[in-house]
Design a protein around this nucleic acid. Structure first.
Lengths: 252, 252
DNA sequence: CGCTACGTTGATCGCACTCAAGTATAGTGG
DNA sequence: CCACTATACTTGAGTGCGATCAACGTAGCG
């Protein structure tokens, strides 16, 4: 329709499973936020307990409800976490970037995965048995506290989302969601702050608790007002302050 | 209107702040889920770092946004956690019972409380400086893992709530909320499974992301169908299986 | 016994969902 | 390189769930 809808500026990472391998493992593990305090030897020891796995875009890594014995750490690429509902309406919980983890963390016996994890791009993950991971944390209390902090901040983010869903209309929720994604996946470009991941209207709808149609309407309006630029599977924020004002106060 | 609306069967605990004291502290701390693995000496040592505080019903314990240096453990009574929103619509996050904690857990410097905590009944809480608590966890990795598990299961509960808000209509959300509360605060009585806490239509509305009026309509309907019995500030579940079916499948 | 806050019920309105038709984009194969 | 197809996106019209506004009952408390 307009010149703003050029080709998708999102670079879809092509990470062949082969590239997901041995060389980078120590580097990745050592750089993990929760292993930052470990000595090189401890990292090397922990490394023994992890094994790498590659997935191409679209592949499912864990199915919610399945028996859960592993914890996964994203090494490269992006992973989408989602819930299925009875009504067929999926809910997208989060998009994880390298260094974040998912899977089962709890010690209880018959644990199942509480969410489905899907490779959003080609990804490499490091898997570790839950028990082994807990053993590592038990030996390295600082790491345990770091994991606790991460879980705690995820809890707060999720509570913020409950607040949004409970009290704010669709427009504000979408504005807030775009800002949150930009914070995590944003990349400065001439066109604005591009959200570096393939992101459909349906994905956004599933993140904000609405429908693709409503999402489209709201985003068309935002585009008219010069807040964003978007196309098929991509969004860029062109006026971040105004979008933030919209998210908080509902002022257009 | 009907005979089902007799006097409130909820016993409002009268816990005078004076009763919130020294004798019970060791007992309470030792029984905490996350201190269960500690030796008696370790519990005694930890005890030194806590101090007790009493609040009468309605008093605010922490204000969201305030500078946060403490973590609180509920010793007796109930504490309501809530968020304020710009629009004045409050969101009720949870009702805590003895053994649960709230306040600040993170180490970051300029931390603020992310939620407001209000005494729902008379309560006694044990307060500990965040730093001191973290030091205890660092010395007792098993306790750190236990706290991690608690936080993790709260995260999962909150994610479930996001799913509910995103995908289900008001009636099902209220059904699910009542069941969740009953699981935590339920008490068998002749009239049914009574939710042992003062619980207004507005409280329920704030938990389910709706209005007191809608809550009232839905609950009237449930009462007609024999699923619940309720009155001013109290609710009892009379047909749990049917209510569960309603929550999950939307079938009345 | 009257006051206050909670709860119920009714009428109306509007946001967002649904259903549906049409348009643009990106990848595919000739 | 270009037609072709699949999929994403847009836009419109109609509907309905739940919010809002308002009035009236009712329980509990002083």
């Amino acid at each position: 329709m307009t010149d703003s809808r050029r080709r998708s500026p999102v670079e879809v990472e092509i990470v062949p499973p082969a590239a997901c391998s041995i060389d980078l493992r120590l580097e990745i593990l050592g750089a993990l936020p929760f292993f930052a305090t470990l000595s090189p030897e401890a990292v090397a020891a922990a490394n023994e307990r992890f094994r790498e796995q590659g997935f191409v875009a679209g592949e499912t890594i864990t199915y919610s409800g399945e028996s859960a014995a592993f914890l996964y750490v994203v090494a490269s690429g992006q992973v989408k976490l989602l819930h299925h509902t009875h009504a067929g309406k999926d809910v997208l919980l989060d998009v994880l970037t390298p260094g974040e983890f998912f899977g089962n963390l709890s010690a209880q016996e018959n644990a199942v995965y509480t969410e489905t994890a899907v490779a959003q791009t080609g990804v490499c993950v490091l898997a570790v048995a839950t028990q082994a991971f807990r053993a590592i944390l038990e030996q390295h209390p600082a790491a345990a506290l770091a994991v606790l902090d991460l879980t705690n901040s995820r809890l707060q983010a999720t509570q913020e989302r409950v607040r949004q869903l409970s009290a704010y209309p669709v427009e504000q929720r979408i504005a807030a969601t775009l800002l949150r994604l930009a914070e995590k996946l944003g990349e400065e470009q001439e066109m604005g702050l591009l959200i570096q991941t393939p992101l459909s209207r349906e994905d956004l709808a599933q993140m904000t608790g609405t429908t693709p149609e409503s999402t489209s309407r709201v985003m068309s309006q935002m585009q008219k007002e010069g807040l964003i630029t978007s196309g098929r599977q991509w969004v860029a924020i062109t006026d971040q302050p105004a979008l933030a004002a919209l998210a908080e106060d509902g002022l257009a």
